[in-house]
Amino acid sequence: MPPVTAPTLNYHELVDTLLEFLEVAIHYVLYVREIYPADIFEPRRKYNVPVRMSRHPVLNGYIRDVLAGIKPDLQKGVVSKVYLAIHDPARNVVEKFTFQIRSLMEGIEEGVRKHAQTTINTSDVEAYLRSFLLKIAVCDSMLNPNPPDCSFVLLVELAGDHPTPTSVSTGAPWVPSEPTDVEVTSPSLIPLKTMDAGLLKMQLYVEESDAKQSSTG
């Protein structure tokens, strides 16, 4: 456990930080994996790491809506995974980035959740998230290139017995998803990074389809 100097974040602050991070990370993955032309990404800096962020309003809106939609569930601690699945033109999943989240806040009253303290402070979180971003930056060296004209989809998996996500007034409604959107055929796994914040643990890993290599040549 890193030494605690600054006051630790409470759970809701951590969730806010995570959502911010997820947005940056998603943009950056799209850039690194070349889902869109590099031109639509502009250089930015986050946690003192140079990253890329899309300038396309529709794409940005989609990502923002999804994350806004996750927020209430993340606060409740019922989100177990956030997927960024990359499809080839034939709609096979060739690659899937998984943000696996394990929160101890599932089923805890809101009042308690609000004030629950995590074990890390802002600078620790930033150090972690920085290493996530750096890992994303180098992950293409561990992955095979994607076939041209890929698309992506963001998916959320909930834990336990929560059948549907909390609906949010803003943004688009949730729709259930098909297994073909999620399942990677003959996958292999590349772990990227894990963050432990006490009440919440997050792991990022990539699953890559072995079929990809044969299809791209």
Partner: peptide, 8 residues
Amino acid sequence: SIFGMRNA
């Protein structure tokens, strides 16, 4: 349960 948005 897995959920997507819009383009699912």
